[in-house]
Design a protein around this nucleic acid. Structure first.
Lengths: 267, 267
DNA sequence: CTAATAGTGTCTATTAGACAGTATGTT
DNA sequence: AACATACTGTCTAATAGACACTATTAG
């Protein structure tokens, strides 16, 4: 590692302070179809990395790294994203900065988190063998948020307590109640990102950053449904989405049913 | 200053790094009424401080300070807010983290900015003599944002270039085109805050954090109008606001016109 | 009376929700 | 034919925009 350039190494008689960028890389995963006639299930998913050193060795964590001396935060986020995915010019946005004094046992580490959205199918290299996509399942009730992250081999679960900070907005403070497999405070960062995504897909076109160039309206609707965690009515969905997409003359013939028209995102 | 506890002083052979919290303290100011029959004009305003030392000596800046060793970012924001206003338990939210390598000529300073909303009338102490409220006027067109900040003595103006980062969301990157009176990159931070406010008053109740306990619907509407920078129709406004407020049996008799009913925020 | 703001009634246009129906492919 | 998804038509309910109107005070 290029330690000369890490601003993480600031030490003095007074204090240690480091700055990292952590990235929530979100995408859509396909499950298996029940029969050849069914559509495959879609999942909202996130890329996590199994940490290979202390602290939190063997826990799942967000891809991240120290911000370098001459880098902006955005550049650090792009670099880390490119390192994990080999993708460039990817949609990202700053999510939140976490800086509690004891969030890292080694020293004070300020983490500015970013959310990035990719179309997983565009990946042109294999993931590193410590990285894995986890499908996200969330159950929320009252003041509790239960998150289940699932990949081929394991199913990890954590529980956060939500505390409403102010009645005028829906600002919550999260506290970890139960968590064995996610390192640092990344369970909270992930929850913050999921929550931001739920809001953003309702009033922006952010979702199209996870879509391939051509897609069917059925697929698009499935993805809205899985992120919002509720069923939508077909005609209403199509009405709302109509002016965001452009019909093409391409068709997909899937299982035993009517072929579906492919659409593109209209800019 | 309590330098022992400032984590700002991290120095090493490798790098200097400091962490600050800067606060956008927003409120509503009252202008003068044209005649005794008119309502007083309302302004959306922000508290700025004239810097008394280099760099940016004599420029207007956001209240801010270094985050201390054992403080969370939120605690630092609360402390700075209390120092300027002597108010506690005030609404605030994290806005954005600015960390470009050269935003402070002295060393690398990461600034996590917060927005706080207060009811100016609740202030129980005088402002320090280097602090002042500025009324905010914004003109936006195409890729330009022009901000005018005005207090009793001066009127300062700066111009930012807006660059749309992505078509799917309305994420902008700001660049300073013209600015003589605002220090650091605080002109950009202020623009980011104004923009966040415009969004938030439309889909949250955040505005009530700037309101006194009792207010008229006319006043409330004026404030929406000045922040959104457009006129609203009375019946539509009252319909939308109706279930957020509670009628009281109090009346205000202002100038030569029908008295107005006072309302409270309904929680 | 006039000026100025407070507040309401109502018509219309637009948008959202619900449900039933038709369309078209594979097995 | 049966199944599964694709897609549309239409009725209704709710919401938003527009405008005209009435109400109430000080001067």
């Amino acid at each position: 590692m290029d330690k000369e350039n890490d601003i993480s190494l600031g030490k003095s008689q007074y204090a240690n302070l480091a700055l990292t960028a952590d990235i929530l890389i979100f995408s859509i995963s396909e499950g298996n179809a029940k029969t050849c006639r069914n559509l495959s299930e879609k999942y909202f998913s996130i890329l996590l990395i199994k940490r290979d050193k202390e602290p939190f060795k063997d826990k799942w964590c967000l891809p991240g790294g120290f911000v370098k001396k001459d880098e902006t935060l955005d550049m650090a986020a792009d670099r880390i994203l490119a390192k994990e995915t080999n993708l460039h010019n990817i949609y990202k946005e700053q999510l939140y900065t976490f800086g509690n004094p004891n969030r890292d046992p080694r020293m004070r580490v300020i983490s500015t988190s970013y959310m990035a959205l990719i179309d997983k199918e565009q990946l042109n290299q294999n993931l590193s063998d410590i990285a894995s996509w986890f499908n996200i399942h969330v159950h929320e009730e009252e003041n509790i948020m239960e998150v289940v992250l699932e990949n081929e081999e394991e199913k990890i679960k954590y529980i956060l307590k939500k505390e409403l900070l102010n009645k005028t907005t829906n600002q919550y403070k999260y506290e970890i109640i139960e968590n064995e497999n996610v390192g640092f405070d990344h369970s909270i960062i992930i929850a913050t990102g999921i929550s931001r995504m739920k809001n953003k897909i309702q009033d922006t076109d952010i979702i199209f950053n996870m879509m391939p160039e051509y897609f069917t309206l059925g697929e698009l609707q499935q993805i809205y449904e899985v992120i919002l965690d509720k069923k939508l009515l077909d005609p209403a969905f199509r009405r709302i989405i109509a002016d965001k997409v452009e019909k093409t003359d391409k068709l997909v013939k899937t299982g035993g049913h009517r072929p579906s028209v492919l659409y593109k995102y209209k800019k």
